[in-house]
């Protein structure tokens, strides 16, 4: 290759780098703010904890320990003692290990509830946005109805139909997000439909399928990702609320923060920490996702582009 052509290639590369896409630009701006970094750190630590907790938990979280059980009475739940950092829970299990492992189950519920909500919502919103017309009207009436129930009530009416299992909770919580994601994606796609680059692609004779998947969807996905981050926070809180109402997972042995909090409600006068620690964990994680989502939203907002 001649020197000249290398220079040219370099120049093209640098041009490509200079013209960052909207998404990259937004991402860069997001991580300039300390709030976003704090959110990212919290979320990152939570995910790491969720992955490694089964290996670092000092005791087996799914087995009662005789030394804890022997001191367990209706009015006394043993506090910290040697080998058991936070003492026992109401069943003679190691509370500290359960709290650690709880990160995994909580992340599981949050992620799957959000993923299912995003998937169904995006299918509905995508169809409505891509086709318009009566498909749009019909699907949007459907989401209107889902939005016409207060969110928790929607989850309650679904959870009350199904047997109390972890998947019931996940599905019930996922349904809260469906209309939100559907409306969001539809709105973004309709805005795309009348944009110049879609018009150009149509004029060039690009197939509708290609336009939808290559031009409209990728440009509409930003708000959905932001909303998904925020939904992760509310999904974890809503799952806890369902457990609190007795519509949660019927497997009381499972170490999940919402379930642990829901099951500790009768024990506040005996050992308040059984409720406080899972609750604080939920609050910190929810805060982390909210901080991250909010700062992403702010940087995606064209008004804030600098």
């Amino acid at each position: 290759m001649s020197i000249l052509s290398t220079r040219k290639a370099d120049k093209i590369d640098s041009l490509a780098e200079g013209g960052t896409s909207l998404a990259m630009d937004a991402l860069r701006r997001t991580f300039r703010s300390p709030v976003a970094i704090l959110g990212l750190v919290i979320v990152g630590l939570f995910v790491i904890l969720a992955i490694i907790s089964p290996f670092i938990a000092p005791k087996d979280p799914y087995r009662p320990y005789p030394e804890l059980q022997s001191e367990l009475t209706p009015s006394n739940i043993p506090g910290p003692m040697p080998g058991f950092l936070l003492g026992s829970d109401q069943n003679g299990y190691d509370f500290f290990s359960r709290l650690l492992v709880g990160a995994q189950q909580t992340l599981f519920v949050g992620v799957f509830a959000t993923l299912i909500g995003v998937t169904i919502g995006m299918i509905i919103g995508g169809l409505a946005g891509a086709f318009g017309g009566w498909v749009d009207s019909l699907l949007m009436r459907l989401t209107d109805i889902m939005l016409s129930l207060p969110s928790l009530l929607l989850a309650i009416s679904i959870a009350a139909l199904l047997p109390g299992s972890q998947w019931t909770v996940i599905i019930a919580v996922a349904m809260i997000g469906v209309p939100v994601f559907a409306r969001l994606l539809r709105g973004a796609m309709i805005a795309q439909r009348s944009s110049d680059h879609v018009l150009a692609a149509t004029a060039l004779g690009v197939k509708r399928k290609t336009i939808v998947f290559r031009h409209m969807l990728p440009n509409s996905i930003g708000p959905v990702i932001v909303q998904a981050t925020l939904t992760l926070a509310t999904a974890i809180i809503d799952a806890a609320a369902l457990s609190f109402l007795g519509l949660g997972d019927s497997d009381w042995r499972r170490a999940e923060w919402g379930l642990m909090l829901g099951n500790a409600q009768e024990l506040l006068s005996v050992k308040p920490s059984l409720a406080f620690f899972p609750a604080i964990a939920i609050i910190i994680v929810a805060l982390g996702f909210t901080l991250l989502g909010e700062s992403m939203r702010e940087s995606l907002d064209p008004k804030n582009r600098r």
């Binding site: 806890a240 609320a241 609190f244 006068s269 409720a275 609750a279 909210t290």
Partner: peptide, 22 residues
């Protein structure tokens, strides 16, 4: 306000009840 949204309502209820009554 961000913390306010992250706190589950029922847990805030518990907390208030614990502090102000118990």
């Amino acid at each position: 306000t961000l913390v306010g949204v992250a706190v589950p309502v029922f847990f805030l209820g518990f907390l208030l009840k614990y502090i102000f009554t118990q």
